[in-house]
């Protein structure tokens, strides 16, 4: 992934820390993250916090990651369909590839992502873990 100063991550704190997405004011459709336009064409949204539960649609593992994640590999990655509808790409935490199965229930967990060197900022966000 792209390495940067903290501000590129700071502006997405609500989205990443609290799974904050958006609900279309016009048709009620839920989105994560908030898009510019809803599929109905409206651009008016109200903030919507997702519960952080969903179903695993697909998963894999990464043995050789991008530079920022080099020391974290191997780690698992999946796509989860949130119980409210939208899909989310997420690292899968506290599990091994062998533990995972399409269709299993997952829950959100707050985790460290990576740090910019020894003295740089530490980045956090939401990962998903199997609901054992």
């Amino acid at each position: 992934m792209f390495r940067s100063t903290p501000i590129i991550r700071w502006r997405k704190y609500q989205e990443r820390y609290n799974l904050m997405g958006a609900k279309c004011e016009k048709c009620g459709k839920l989105h994560y993250p908030q898009p510019a336009l809803c599929t109905c064409g409206s651009s008016k949204f109200i903030a919507h916090k997702f519960k952080g539960e969903g179903t695993l649609l697909s998963f894999t593992d990464i043995g050789s990651g991008p530079e920022a994640y080099a020391e974290h590999a191997p780690y698992c990655l999946g796509i989860i369909q949130l119980s409210e509808g939208p899909k989310i790409t997420s690292q899968l935490s506290d599990c091994k590839l062998e533990d995972l199965k399409i269709g299993m229930q997952m829950i959100a967990t707050f985790r460290k992502f990576y740090s910019s060197g020894e003295k740089g900022a530490i980045y956090y966000g939401t990962k998903f873990t199997p609901k054992w």
């Binding site: 792209f2 990443r16 990651g65 920022a68």
Partner: peptide
């Protein structure tokens, strides 16, 4: 790997440590 990830969505996929082999593996 980092440069190629620019072809994905940096905020949705890149931040999560996704790589292109991983995204196609999901497919």
């Amino acid at each position: 790997t980092t440069a190629l990830m620019g072809a994905g969505d940096e905020e949705v996929e890149g931040f999560q440590g996704a790589t292109f082999p991983a995204l196609y593996a999901l497919m």
